[in-house]
Structures are given as C-alpha cells and as structure tokens.
C-alpha cells in the first residue's frame, strides 16, 4: 500500500526520476504519452471507453479519460486533443462526424458489429390502450391517447434533442400524422418523461434508441414506419409520400463506428491496430451498460469485470496486433 506518508517520506525528485524512466523505457515503439479517451454521459460509452482503455493499459500504454460533450468531441478529435471516439452513432452523431471528416484531422476507424436503431418508441404498457401498434398506421387512431393540455386534441410525440438532428416534425407532416412533435432537451428529459408515465401506465410516445439501458428498465417497442430507403432524406420520390422528404422510418440497422485522430497511427501504432480490430456486438454493449445501470458498479469496475469475463472476445484483437 503506497500511502501518503510513505510517498511524502520519499524525496519527490527521486520518485519523479524513477517514474520518468519506467514510463520511458517501457515501450520503444508506442509513445509513452497518454492516449486520451473521451467519455460522455451514457453508461455503455463510459464502460466501453474504460474497457478499451484497460486493454491499452494491458499493453503498457498510458491512458487518460476526459469528459466531453458528445457533439463537440469531433472537433477535439480533429485537433488531436483527444485521440479516438468509440461510439459514433449514425443517427445522432453522423452529421458532426461527417463535418469533422470533411475538415480533416480524424478518420473512420471501422464499424462495430453492433447495429443501432433510433426511432419513435413506446413502452409496452402503451400497447394495451392502442393495440394497433407497432404499425405506424395505428398512430392516428390513438392520437388522442397521447394528447396533453398544451397539444389540444393532437397527439404528442417527444422527439430527441434538436442537436441530435432527428426529423420527427418533418416525418409527422410527410405521413399526415395527427401529432405535435416536441423536442426534449436531453436524454435525461426523455427518461424523466417515461419515468413519470410509468406508475399510471400512461401511454407515451418518445424517441429512443438501442442499445441502451432503457430496454432493461422499461420494455418497449419501436414504431414500425415505412422501411428506410436510401435517399429518403434527399429525394421526395422515395417513400410512400411522393412529395415529401423523411417519409420513412430511420434505418433499422444504422452503423456504430469508431473514429480516430489522424496522428494516432504514427504515435501509438500498436494501440491503433487494436482499435481498428475492436468490434462490440449489441448484447455486449447492453451487458456493459447493465453492469453500471442495473448492478450499480462503477464504470472502471464494470469494465474490469467485463474484460475478465470476456477474455475470449478481446484477447484475439490484441493478439492480432502483437508485433
């Protein structure tokens, strides 16, 4: 146990020199500078970042974590202030990612196995009062079930935050839905809305995505909209309404990417190699989130436990990159 007392007793300079030399001599190939991994405010991403960080550490890298905003982070990756991003959701962060990609400085480091889906969603109890679900055509019949004082007789759909760039309003119009679309300001606002409806089993229609922790807490389903066709967001002719954009559901299988800073490959070639090999599946991500959200573990602890239980999953990534 290295405690304060012993540490203070040792001359600072001596410790510093030892510290420097050990760090310096450990790896000839990869840089000794810390790899900085951004973490955001949802559990799966935090645990995954910790897990990957611990994999890097097992290779002898130094790793540090920094909390950032999930949109502004792409600018930081681009500038090399943080070095990678483990969860690039197609729907929510696709635009920021693509814009940063155009400006240069970061690149696509491959997809996860996991697919993402983000769309209109309802908790299971809603189905009892609106049995026509999950088909979107049932929505208009049940519209008044979802009505609130401020929406009058129209139904209310709580969309994701504006900066996630969902197009709920456009879709409601394009498909002639008798719904008012309201933007929540944050993920937390969405959970609060579901949480508030839970006791009385009030029907609610909110934006949701998978994989995340909500599935475990509130079982539910996505509304089945007309299937996504490529160009549905650019070409009015696509989808059932020939005169409107956004008349399809979101892609049911959106990508979940990793992004890396352009300089990473040169600076930490081995770690970069591992990053490109990394690929998590939906159940794995859900499992990580569960460790924190349901089992109340701390993220670093959850990552440790997950890595211990899933050596078969991650060892091959590392072995593939052993030089």
């Amino acid at each position: 146990m290295k405690t304060t007392l012993t540490r203070f007793a040792t001359a600072a300079a001596v410790t510093a020199v030892i510290g420097m030399t050990t760090v310096g001599s450990a790896q000839a190939e990869d840089s000794g500078d810390p790899i900085i991994i951004p973490i955001h405010n949802w559990s799966s991403q935090i645990v995954m970042s910790n897990a990957v960080g611990q994999i890097f550490e097992s290779l002898g890298r130094n790793v540090e974590y920094v909390t950032t905003d999930s949109q502004a982070v792409y600018e930081s990756v681009r500038l090399g202030d943080v070095h990678l991003e483990l969860e690039v959701w197609e729907g929510a962060f696709g635009k920021s990612f693509r814009e940063a990609l155009e400006k240069g400085g970061l690149h696509d480091a491959g997809d996860h196995d996991a697919v993402t889906r983000e769309d209109w969603w309802y908790p299971m109890w809603t189905k009892e009062s609106c049995p026509g679900l999950p088909s979107w055509e049932a929505l208009n019949d049940c519209a008044e079930l979802f009505a609130t004082p401020e929406t009058g007789d129209k139904g209310r759909y709580l969309d994701g935050p504006v900066d996630w760039l969902k197009h709920g309003k456009e879709r409601a119009e394009a498909l002639g839905l008798n719904f008012t679309v309201i933007n929540a300001g944050s993920a937390a606002a969405l959970w609060a809305e579901i949480g508030a409806a839970e006791k009385d089993k009030k029907p609610v229609l909110v934006f949701n995505w998978t994989p995340n922790f909500a599935e475990a807490v509130w079982p539910g389903e996505f509304v089945e909209f007309p299937e996504w066709e490529d160009g549905c967001d650019k070409d009015p002719a696509k989808g059932p309404n020939k005169d409107a954009l956004y008349d399809c559901g979101n892609p049911a299988k959106g990508y979940l990417k990793k992004a890396a800073w352009d300089g990473m490959e040169d600076k930490w070639p081995q770690a970069y190699c591992v990053l490109t090999k990394i690929s998590f599946t939906n159940p794995q991500i859900a499992e990580m989130a569960k460790l924190v959200d349901v089992d109340e573990q701390e993220p670093d602890e959850a990552a440790e436990n997950w890595l211990a239980d899933n050596e078969a999953v991650w060892k091959p990534w590392v072995e593939a990159c052993a030089s």
Partner: peptide
Amino acid sequence: GAKLLAMMGSF
C-alpha cells in the same frame, strides 16, 4: 459534474 451528467443520463 461529469458523474452527475452520467447519472442523469441513466435516470
């Protein structure tokens, strides 16, 4: 602060 945001993100 960061922990708070994470906690709120998972309700």
